[in-house]
Amino acid sequence: MTMRMGLVLLLALLLLSGCDTAPDASTAMNARQYARDVEQWRAQRLARLRAGDGWLSYIGSGRLRPGSYRLGSAPGNDLLLPAGPAQLGLLEVDANGNARIDGKPGSGATLNGHPLRQAELRPGVAGMQEASRIRLGTSEFYLVRMGSVLGWRFRDPGSARRRNFQGIEHFPVDRRWQVQARWQPYAQARQAVLLTSIGTPLPAQVPGEAVFEMDGRTFRLQPVLDKEALPSRQLFFLFSDRTSGRETYGGARYLYAAEPRDGKLVLDFNRAENPPCALTPHVVCPIAPAVNRLDLAVTAGEKFQYLPQ
């Protein structure tokens, strides 16, 4: 063999060797980057939960029916607040769910930066309407509407639940659960009714379904349009699976996905999260519909643990 032929063979072997190892190195690098991305998402989510206006700041809640309510933190009030002035005022709710408050002079409460007097209280509706918020120092009281239910919320950034929060447990990050699904849109969005964590109905729109394969089986998930994410039309999946009620929250886990492109979308179950009602008893949230109960153990995303009060 001539020296020239030997060099040609050596070069060919090096090229073949490079073809064998380069994809493995690239795959490992992509996997590390993906894990970092998921960890960053987790850190951002925990920061939102730990924020003064996060879910962990709620310390009081309840439902309201038509009638008159004396508000305050002192015993004897019709609606007993967990904190704030002894007497906040008189709240009146009519048969149509409209609310009006007559504030107690000297309570220290404010509305829109002014001392609380007589005022209409606009309830908050997720993604559609901001609530009229009564400020009580660093705390706040306001009304919310979910479907046909009118309720109240009390928020305190100094809540013990927020102070004692240690984080959320997760399944290990596994790239297998970053699933590419086929998107099958409906000709027109279908009307659906979700149930909430307290059993009340909640209207929703279903624009289509995501179809994916896992372990040789085909699964389908129907999203609803997330009003809070509009106009991006981000898809919002509420699902349960074989881990639900055991390792994960029984009612549902939530998963958001970007708008489909070219008939496909990504379901990244490593970013599956607990609903707000798994973090505090003072909010109401929709649970997974029967069609989204997967006969599959989704060992990815957030686990459920009881949080300190």
Rank of each mutant, 00 (worst) to 15 (best):
M3G: 09
L9M: 06
L10S: 04
L11A: 13
L15P: 00
G18S: 11
D20M: 14
S26G: 09
R32M: 13
E39Q: 15
R42W: 06
R42Y: 09
A43L: 11
L46P: 04
L49M: 15
G54L: 04
W55T: 02
L64M: 08
L64P: 06
G72Q: 02
P75R: 06
L79N: 09
L81S: 05
G89L: 08
L90W: 11
E92F: 07
E92N: 14
A99W: 00
A99V: 03
A99I: 04
I101N: 02
K104Q: 15
N112P: 00
P115F: 02
Q118T: 15
E120M: 12
E120A: 15
L121V: 10
R122M: 11
G124V: 02
V125W: 00
R135N: 08
R135S: 11
L136R: 00
L136D: 03
F141Y: 10
G147I: 05
G147L: 07
V149S: 12
G151A: 07
R162C: 05
W177D: 07
V179F: 03
W183F: 00
Q184E: 14
A187N: 09
A189Y: 03
R190N: 08
L194G: 00
S197F: 04
I198R: 11
I198W: 07
T200A: 12
T200M: 09
Q205T: 12
Q205K: 15
G208T: 09
E209V: 08
F212V: 10
E213F: 08
T218E: 14
P223S: 12
K227N: 15
K227G: 13
D241V: 01
G245Q: 01
Y254Q: 05
A258H: 13
E259L: 13
P260F: 01
F269T: 07
E273R: 13
A278P: 08
L279G: 02
P281L: 05
P286T: 06
A300D: 01
L307F: 06
P308S: 06
